[in-house]
Design a protein around this nucleic acid. Structure first.
Lengths: 238, 238
DNA sequence: AGCAAAACATGACTTTTGTCAGCCGAAAAA
DNA sequence: TTTTTCGGCTGACAAAAGTCATGTTTTGCT
């Protein structure tokens, strides 16, 4: 269970090109590189907890991490699932607040930690980088607004279908005519994404399956008919 | 129905102290001031529409504006309600995307418009201002995450109670022991905030009223017992 | 391999919420 | 002033989704 370190160099990182750090000048990237710590995490370990103070920024180099809020009864709502190349914990860091959610490793992960001060010093001397950060955060916010409206007005069936399509977009591995969602999600986690009860997800999934929209492959879901799924996600009414 | 201009100077604006522009150096504030246009809007007029390109930033100097998304059936979901001192439309402007929502005047308003280029030039030469913007946006995002989790797991009754308390915090005019929500909201608008049907809001409001939690004062709602309302907002189960 | 725990599945039932229809009263338009 | 429209309100009903109970399968552990 001991956290084991691993070593990697930022400017050689395979995810750099998709990351916010892409385009950062070499000296600043090296500054980040020298101060980061890279650690292996096992499934189930927590990166940070809701209500605690952020000490830095997490950068995912492998595996998957879920970020969720717990409600009074202990039920989870998953805000999002981070994959390699994603940053975690920047929201609270930048707003100078406590974490609003907990981050837990879903699949064994390799994660780099950049201390708060090092990140801020790079941020503060790079207005261009700042602009990129603003742009990214505002884009995220647009997605949030979308989800908010969806949650407010769509049925559980529609939301499940929409979320399956979303997961396919983000984690889909394309095969012939169908694509596999490369994420070992439990039904409970899926329910926490959709915002419903586990039993409801189970029932709807088996409906989708018998209607030939999806199939199960081990712990993973394969999307067979994205078009029909999209129909379920929108409104059947026309 | 003609839009009529009005005149105001930024550095004399009574809302400057609560605004993001507070602390901006005098030359930049004057730059904004010289390029802004200030217009009277009547109830029902639109500032901008979902799906169109942002041309600048709106700064509210009087009145109230609702920002909402329309779903397929034309049902609204109100993302938020802006009051004097608030900025509108910066999210899409900064993410360089189309507007994700529509802004419509709820109560006759006085609104200044700052063209895109003028705002960006001030932003780009003020890293400190940028940092303030990042901080504000990230704070907003935390609120969104909160609402997302609330929408996912709370019942309509809980959400209505929570939203009434929120509206009280933001628009409340304190009286002896009770506070009036200074916002002429229709039941339909309230339903669009809570994410439910108008009839449900009506029923719950009259329950809250007969339980002595709120009372009606013209078109407005008075919060009589915030404590009990908070109990309704959380979980009664304990 | 064998066992315990967790995840998945299904049925029965209840509760919540949405929808539809109709009514009333106040405000706006003619 | 009359008429129309709109917002608020209520009842009846249907549909959606949650809860509870129980059984089965899978997984992980020793």
């Amino acid at each position: 269970m001991a956290k084991t370190e691993f070593s990697i160099t930022c400017n050689l990182c395979e995810y750099l090109k998709d990351s916010l750090f892409n385009g950062l000048n070499p000296e600043d990237l090296e500054h980040i590189n020298l101060h980061k710590t890279c650690i292996h995490y096992r499934k189930g370990q927590n990166l940070f907890y809701e209500g605690t103070r952020p000490m830095g920024l997490y950068c995912i180099n492998g595996g998957k991490v879920k970020v969720f809020k717990n409600n009074v009864q202990g039920k989870e709502y998953i805000i999002y699932i981070a994959k390699p190349g994603d940053f975690l914990g920047y929201r609270a860091l930048l707003s100078e607040e406590f974490y609003g959610a907990t981050a837990q490793v879903l699949e064994d992960a390799k994660i780099c930690f950049i201390p708060r001060d090092q990140f801020f010093s790079v941020l503060n001397r790079n207005p261009t980088f700042m602009r990129k950060v603003i742009k990214a955060v505002c884009h995220e916010m647009g997605i949030m607004e979308e989800r908010l409206a969806e949650l407010a007005h769509k049925s559980v069936r529609e939301r499940l279908a929409a979320n399956l399509l979303m997961l396919k977009e983000t984690y889909g591995m394309e095969g012939e005519g169908s694509s596999l969602i490369d994420l070992a999600l439990s039904r409970e986690d899926l329910a926490s994404i959709v915002g419903t009860a586990t039993e409801t997800v189970i029932r709807l999934l088996s409906e989708f399956k018998s209607d030939g929209l999806i199939s199960f492959e081990g712990k993973k879901i394969r999307v067979i008919d994205p078009k029909k799924l999209a129909k379920q996600a929108d409104l059947i009414v026309a």
